[in-house]
Design a protein around this nucleic acid. Structure first.
Lengths: 195, 195
DNA sequence: TACTTTGTAAAGTTTAAATTGCATAGATTA
DNA sequence: TAATCTATGCAATTTAAACTTTACAAAGTA
């Protein structure tokens, strides 16, 4: 294989770094966030230090307004933070540099929100079902009785599920997950679990 | 509070069931699938038995073509399956009725795909980095040296991360997660973890 | 055989999301 | 105080996704 000139090396480096950025962006979509969120995460991460909105706009070729919107979204998702840089008035944004930590932030932020939305509705529905139950009598058609009963059981299953997710989120957030699935695989050679 | 007539009960039941379906659909978006996927999941789930494309189209008011598209997607995601019904030539589709199992199917399907896409790229990139390394010499500018080194370390971190996700997926898929976060919470009274 | 029924591909349309350009508030400097 | 610069709200536009219509192949039925 040919040895590479310095110029070729630089080109290769840039290409490889860009591919990593692209893939980070790509993977981020699995969390249901827009690809630009992933793009910025990749760019700031690979830059290895905090960046301004202007720098990001420059890098992506997008408008500064969009950069502002996306960074705000990332702050809300807990995967970026503002960083003070003395001597500069501009806001500098940095991202979590630990992949697994980013995973956990996104996972917990997303699901915590779902759990919250859900438990509220569950409480409201349960009140209504209880009300229905008090309206049942011996003259109520059996079909209706069954449906109310089924609905009540459905709410139980529902509650159990969201309670499970809630505990799951905590399992991740508290770091307990790392006790059972450690970052570094203990089995060095055979690092793939059996089929 | 007023007691409800049978007609009112039926209306209330329908309203509650619809709200559950809607919320299932809503929550499904957290997995990054379209809301219609969630809608169909909710409808078939609440129907408690397999449904045909025509029935789904009827229920949703959408075209049969769209139902076909979405069901195919759900099969790919492992959250639905075809079910043979004798005496009918139509295809009948059913869905997983266990919430937690659905969660796991979606989680593992999505991330397994990410891991796969990723490991392929990682291998290719590593070859190229190795090639770059052989091209380095004592005359190579230190800046280039550093970047190659940084890239190489980045690939290590990357590999460790995806390997972690791979093991994480297995942790869910194999059901080990339930050993540590059981479906039914053991602490009945205090079923919320401390802040 | 011709005639239905079912499911899906291809192409076209509609709807929703992402993105931009402009305008402006707030903060900083001179 | 005016002059300047940053970040963001908002309306307008572009782009991508969801969805529909039409068309057709495969398999069944009469």
């Amino acid at each position: 294989m040919e040895s590479l000139s310095n110029d070729q090396l630089l080109t290769e480096l840039q290409a490889a770094e860009d591919q990593i950025t692209d893939r980070i962006a790509d993977n981020m979509e699995t969390f249901g966030v827009s690809s630009t969120v992933g793009r910025l995460l990749g760019i700031i991460y690979m830059n290895r230090e905090a960046m301004t909105l202007d720098a990001l706009a420059e890098e992506t070729g997008m408008s500064k307004t969009r950069m502002s919107q996306v960074m705000r979204q990332m702050l809300a998702l807990n995967i970026a933070e503002k960083e003070f840089v003395k001597g500069s008035r501009k806001e500098h944004y940095n991202v979590e540099s630990d992949y697994a930590q980013t995973f956990i932030s996104l996972f917990t932020t997303n699901w915590r929100e779902v759990v919250s939305r859900n438990m509220t509705l569950e409480r409201r529905l349960r009140e209504r079902v209880d009300h229905m139950k008090t309206s049942l009598s011996s003259e109520t058609p059996v079909e209706i009785n069954d449906r109310v009963e089924a609905l009540s059981e459905e709410l139980d299953a529902w509650q159990a599920y969201y309670n499970w997710i809630d505990r799951l989120v905590y399992f991740f957030e508290s770091g307990q997950i790392f006790d059972h699935v450690p970052i570094r695989d203990s089995q060095k050679e055979d690092n793939h679990h059996e089929k």
